[in-house]
């Protein structure tokens, strides 16, 4: 336990004062709202010692339909040495739903981003192979968006 959580949050605030919008905590989890441009810098900064957030636990997206900044990317980072999880959030606009890819930093971001692209239609700049992961070619729309109907099926072959 080299560094305390408060110290890390303070360091972040100092280093990226312009890019961090808000810091909150809920149910014991720390949430850091950031601007989407600064994502890669912040992750790179935290990956180095002494913070060592070397694991991307999870990456997902939330659709807030009706709001101007419709999509919210959620990143969970984890530090094995500090035993600490942090959650980062970045908002994307509907007509500009693009964010920088994390594939150069974390290898599992490849599939996770493909999943988000498949389910929400968010584009990742710098992703080497952005292709649908769960659904098939020829599937129209993005199923996890709130405006996609639950039961709208698009069969691949003729059904009887």
């Amino acid at each position: 336990m080299a560094i305390s959580k408060e110290k890390i949050l303070e360091d972040l605030k100092q280093k990226f004062s312009d890019n961090i919008l808000d810091m909150t905590a809920q149910f014991g989890d720390d949430i850091i709202h950031i601007k989407k441009e600064a994502l890669q810098d912040i992750v790179n900064f935290l990956k180095e010692d002494p913070y060592a957030f070397t694991m991307l636990l999870d990456l997902t997206c939330v659709d807030y339909q009706g709001e101007e900044e419709r999509f919210e990317m959620v990143y969970h980072l984890f530090s094995l040495s500090l035993n600490l999880r942090l959650r980062f959030k970045a908002r994307l606009k509907q007509n500009d739903c693009k964010i920088v890819s994390l594939t150069p930093i974390f290898k599992n971001a490849n599939w996770l981003e493909r999943e988000v692209y498949d389910m929400f239609g968010v584009h990742f700049e710098g992703h080497p192979y952005l292709r649908r992961l769960f659904m098939y070619d020829g599937f129209e729309g993005h199923p996890l968006r709130k405006d996609y109907p639950l039961r709208k099926q698009q069969p691949k072959i003729d059904l009887r």
Binding site: P143, Y148, P149, Q153, I157, R160
Partner: peptide, 13 residues
């Protein structure tokens, strides 16, 4: 699983 991804019974295939 009554949703967009699942075939509603294999007798349709």
């Amino acid at each position: 699983y009554d949703n967009y991804a699942v075939v509603q019974g294999i007798d349709r295939i």
